[in-house]
Structure formats: structure tokens, C-alpha cells
């Protein structure tokens, strides 16, 4: 049963996006993730409007004084188990706004963070990579025994993924 729950969570994580005082750069990249070019819905990732249905909280921004309380409240409303991903340099450490008077300088000053995705803003590919790494950390892919067919090793799942990504990048350039 526990396995089934983990499987369901990892295969279809619902994410909630919260802007804690970001410049819009990261937020637009998150929306770009959902649109046809990057299309994360094929991985089962769905943007969910309500914190009460969400598994993963994507936070952008350096956390302004006015937003800090709301961020905590949104986090408290999410059901367990919950994970927080800090997206962008500001959410990780304050970024260019470190030391400004109205920001706290990082999401981890307010709520615990599971994954950090740096960049100003991170590319959509980087956000996908960060989410996949988080999901792998939640449910590490099991190492299968490699079958040998006519002396050629069958690739395991974790080996297939990077190859696909490489092809994509080549195709783009």
C-alpha cells in the first residue's frame, strides 16, 4: 500500500506555484513549462490552483515582508507529505535583492526547502531537471538487473533519459 502511494505521488505530482515577490522572470518560465514546447503535463505534473490539493510547492522570489506570512500560511494548508522547490536565485538566496530592506532573502528563511534550482531565471529545462531530481530522491529508481540479449546490454530507465535529452538539445541547435 505504501508503495502504491509513493508510486501515485511520484507519477503525478500536483504543483502549486507561489510568487513570494519575484520579478516575473521565473514565473513566466513556470508557465512556459506548461505550454506546448516543454509540456510537463506528459510527466504527470499538473499546475494546481489550491494549496489543499498540491504535493509540491514551487516558490519564486526573494520573499518580501508582506508575502512571508502568506507563504507560511499556504505551506501550512498543504497536506502531508509536502515538498518545497525554491526556483531562481532569489528564492535560493535572495539573488540580486540580497540585502534589500523589504526582503528576507530566500525561501528557507520561512519554510523548509527540499530542492533548490538556481538561475536568473532558470531555464525551463533546468526546472524540469530539478523536479525530476526531487522525484527521484523521493522514490529512488530501483536498480534492475541488466538483461543481456545477444551480448548487448538492455539500457535501464535511468540511462535512457539522458540520451533522449541529448538528442533534444542537438535537434535544437
Amino acid at each position: 500500500m505504501a508503495d502504491a502511494k509513493t508510486w501515485a505521488r511520484v507519477k503525478s505530482p500536483w504543483v502549486l506555484h507561489f510568487n513570494s515577490g519575484a520579478c516575473n522572470g521565473c514565473d513566466i518560465e513556470i508557465v512556459a513549462l506548461l505550454t506546448p514546447k516543454y509540456d510537463v503535463e506528459r510527466f504527470g505534473i499538473k499546475l494546481e490552483p489550491s494549496p489543499r490539493h498540491a504535493d509540491i510547492l514551487l516558490v519564486t522570489g526573494a520573499v518580501t515582508n508582506q508575502c512571508a506570512e502568506r507563504l507560511k500560511r499556504v505551506y501550512d494548508q498543504m497536506p502531508q507529505p509536502k515538498f518545497v522547490v525554491a526556483i531562481g536565485a532569489c528564492a535560493c538566496s535572495g539573488g540580486v535583492f540580497a540585502g534589500t530592506y523589504n526582503t528576507l532573502g530566500g525561501v528557507d528563511k520561512v519554510i523548509p526547502v527540499s530542492a533548490y534550482i538556481p538561475g536568473c531565471p532558470p531555464r525551463p529545462e533546468a526546472i524540469i531537471d530539478g523536479c525530476v531530481k526531487l522525484l527521484n530522491a523521493i522514490n529512488p529508481p530501483k536498480k534492475k538487473k541488466r538483461k543481456q540479449v545477444n551480448g548487448i546490454k538492455e539500457a535501464t530507465k535511468s540511462e535512457v533519459v539522458p540520451v533522449v535529452m541529448e538528442v533534444k538539445q542537438d535537434g535544437k541547435q
Binding site: G21, A22, C23, A62, Q66, C67, F97, Y101, T103
Partner: peptide, 21 residues
Amino acid sequence: GYVHRGIEKTTESRTYLQDTY
């Protein structure tokens, strides 16, 4: 004011080149 980061004040303590960014 939810996104008020105090950029106008912060520019006063950084150089012109830093302010550009």
C-alpha cells in the same frame, strides 16, 4: 506592495553598473 523589494532605495547603495542589472 506584495512585491515591494525596495529597489529604489537599494540603487543608492550600489554603483551605476550594478544598478543597471
